[in-house]
Write a protein that binds this DNA or RNA. Structure first.
Length: 638
DNA sequence: CTAGGGTTAG
């Protein structure tokens, strides 16, 4: 039975592979003899080799063997055909490269097939290597090779190489068509050379819609939103890409509402949506948390049978994750189509890592870890994206062992720790109590960014080592790394722990005056805490009024615990009245007040607060803690 | 030319 299936498959697929331009090969393949030979061979191949060995590959290999046997390697036409077969059908670039070396008389087509093949599989180093070799051998590149090489330079941000090629084209007077000029334009944009792009754009005789679209995306990449919008609006003819580009760019620059307006406008007067539009629309929906609109788009996606598109599926998944609908997200994940091609496998990896990060984002660490275990069992590729989320889950669950295992695993497979993974690991070791390990990772990392420094500063703050945290913060500013709002939260907490009132005030001012960061309620709470803990209750009160933050209950809670710390019961009473007005049903406020009375041995008043809680039916959730001993988690209630 | 996944916040 197996044999029949295989033969049918081979015969079925054969016609698509008929190499019509090369008569010699066509003759061979058309003979029954070859067909039989091929089927027998492929049957043997299927038995001896692991599954996944495609019939295309078999055909290319057999043809290769046949060609060598018959001495047809001299025929360039056959060689190029065979090379193309390796590149396009069997996707075996290794064999293609080997064959390429065997071909003695290579023409420009031979080079083009191989170079565009490597470009297609994003092996850009090889593309550049082959291009240089080609130039050394004195072969003149054509438009196809040039556009492959230019795409490669733009992906690698190789501005120097790109400029050299542009110069070479100009001096050798190669015919520049719009397509090639657009590639160069895009190269300059991707490398961030806006001035070069503008100069080229002005000098271009013919500009098509693609050229204009590239300029729109150029302005958006540089953050010149208004210029991009003006350019977009001034276009007489806007294609789908123009609309897609402007909406995506507006969203990424923080103008989500404008992007949404344009989406509605596009529906009314613009061109038909394509797959890109749906993906962008779904991302827009997640940014704005418009779940209902998202569901409508989901319906439309199903109606148009676009749900098998990897990008769209992942945008859907991301939308549900960001809206907190994990059930729906997991449903989307479960509908991965069976057909898995080269592009789909990446999409699948992205789907899984989105799912894991979604669980972590929504605080469902246990589900994240479960998904991870499932992935390992089912041999789904776990890459650095998934690992980063998993380490973060370990950090928040305090599971040092798994965290260490993941760290060891990363070292074993030789992954370089990038900054995201490092920050996650630092955070994990710090939260699991191993400050030394956190420090070791921080020191071994070479490319430093804000998040990395912030993680380490917070790690010190977390361990009560305020002085070290502040020192590190000073180092960071010396290195001219710009702190963000989260960095300042860490620094202010550190000042709190070390009782550094003056420094805290200094940094709070620095944040606003030098770095232009508007304080959020976390910063205000830290400051109130800082004043309060130092015993300056009146200054804390003044601070609250000066900054107009008396409506924030977190601020008053922090203030109240300071009153308890300094046994200022009268002030505490006054504060708790305000607090209870703000939040009638929050157990925490009652508990704080009652605790303050008990600290001062005013048992009766403490009991009154408790009975007030009962009257108002406010329940305190019991505290829960746990410890992991020998693979078993033990829970404690308070 | 345009679309998808990760880190820091007692």
């Amino acid at each position: 039975m197996k044999r029949t299936c295989l033969s049918i498959r081979c015969f079925d697929t054969k016609p698509t592979l008929l190499p019509s331009p090369v008569p010699a090969i066509t003759d061979i393949i058309n003979t029954t003899k070859f067909e039989l030979y091929h089927c027998q061979q492929s049957y043997r191949h299927h038995q001896s080799l692991s599954f996944g060995y495609s019939h295309h590959k078999t055909i290319a290999d057999l043809l290769h063997a046949y060609v060598i046997k018959n001495g047809s390697l001299q025929s360039l036409g056959i060689c190029n055909y065979l090379l193309n077969l390796y590149v396009r059908k069997s996707q075996n670039l290794y064999h293609a490269h080997k064959l390429f070396d065997e071909i003695l008389a290579r023409d420009i087509r031979t080079w083009t097939i191989l170079i565009s093949g490597f470009a297609h599989y994003e092996n850009y180093k090889m593309v550049l290597h082959l291009f240089r070799k080609m130039q050394r051998e004195g072969v003149y590149p054509n438009q196809f090779t040039l556009s492959s090489v230019l795409k490669c330079c733009s992906t690698l941000c190789e501005l120097r190489n790109g400029k050299a090629i542009h110069g070479w084209i100009l001096t050798n007077e190669i015919g520049l068509d719009v397509v090639l000029e657009n590639s160069i334009l895009d190269l300059y944009v991707k490398c961030g050379a806006l001035d070069y792009a503008q100069r080229l754009f002005k000098s271009m005789e013919w500009k098509d819609t693609v050229s204009w679209n590239i300029m729109i995306s150029a302005y958006l990449h540089m953050g010149h939103v208004q210029r991009a919008l003006d350019l977009f609006l001034s276009l007489n003819f806007k294609d789908v890409t123009s609309w897609n580009t402007i909406m995506d760019g507006l969203m990424k620059n923080g103008f989500e509402r404008t992007a949404l307006e344009l989406l509605y406008k596009m529906l009314e007067i613009g061109p038909m949506f394509n797959a890109f539009t749906f993906s962008i629309a779904l991302n827009l929906v997640s940014c704005l948390s418009l779940l209902e609109l998202g569901k409508q788009i989901h319906g439309q996606v199903l109606r148009l049978v676009l749900h098998n598109n990897g990008f769209i599926r992942n945008s859907l998944l991301g939308m549900y994750c960001k809206c907190g609908k994990m059930e729906e997200a997991s449903m989307t994940l479960r509908t991965i189509p069976l057909k898995i091609s080269c592009d789909d496998s990446l999409a699948e990896i992205v789907s899984w890592s989105s799912m894991v990060s979604g669980y972590v984002r929504n605080g469902k660490y246990e589900s994240a870890l479960q998904t991870f275990r499932f992935m390992v069992n089912e041999q789904v590729v776990v890459d650095k994206f998934t690992l980063t989320s998993i380490v973060s889950a370990c950090a928040n669950k305090g599971i040092l062992e798994l965290g260490r295992q993941v760290h060891a695993h990363i070292q074993k497979i030789g992954h370089k720790l990038d900054s995201h993974l490092c920050s996650s690991l630092i955070d994990m070791y710090a939260k699991c109590g191993s400050l030394n390990d956190a420090q070791r990772i921080f020191k071994q990392n070479i490319d430093m960014n804000v998040v990395l420094w912030t993680s380490m500063i917070s790690a010190f703050a977390f361990h009560g080592q305020g002085q070290e945290a502040v020192q590190l913060f000073e180092c960071m500013m010396n290195e001219r790394i710009k702190p963000n709002e989260i960095t300042f939260i860490g620094v202010l907490i550190a000042c709190n722990h070390a009782g550094l009132l003056e420094e805290g005030c200094k940094y709070f001012e620095l944040m606003q005056k030098v770095y232009g960061i508007k304080p959020g309620f976390e910063h205000y709470t830290c400051m109130v805490d800082l004043y309060g803990r130092s015993g300056r209750l009146n200054e804390a009160k003044e601070f609250i009024h000066e900054n107009g933050i008396s409506h924030l209950s977190a601020v008053w809670k922090s203030f109240l615990s300071c009153c308890r710390l300094h046994k200022n019961v009268e002030m505490g009473k006054w504060v708790s009245e305000r607090l209870l007005k703000l939040e009638q049903s929050d157990a925490g406020s009652y508990i704080l007040l009652s605790n303050m009375y008990s600290t001062d041995h005013r048992w009766e008043e403490a009991a009154n607060v408790r009975s007030l809680m009962r009257q108002r039916r406010v329940n305190k959730l019991p505290g829960l803690s746990w410890i992991q001993l020998k693979n078993q988690v033990h829970n404690f209630f308070f």
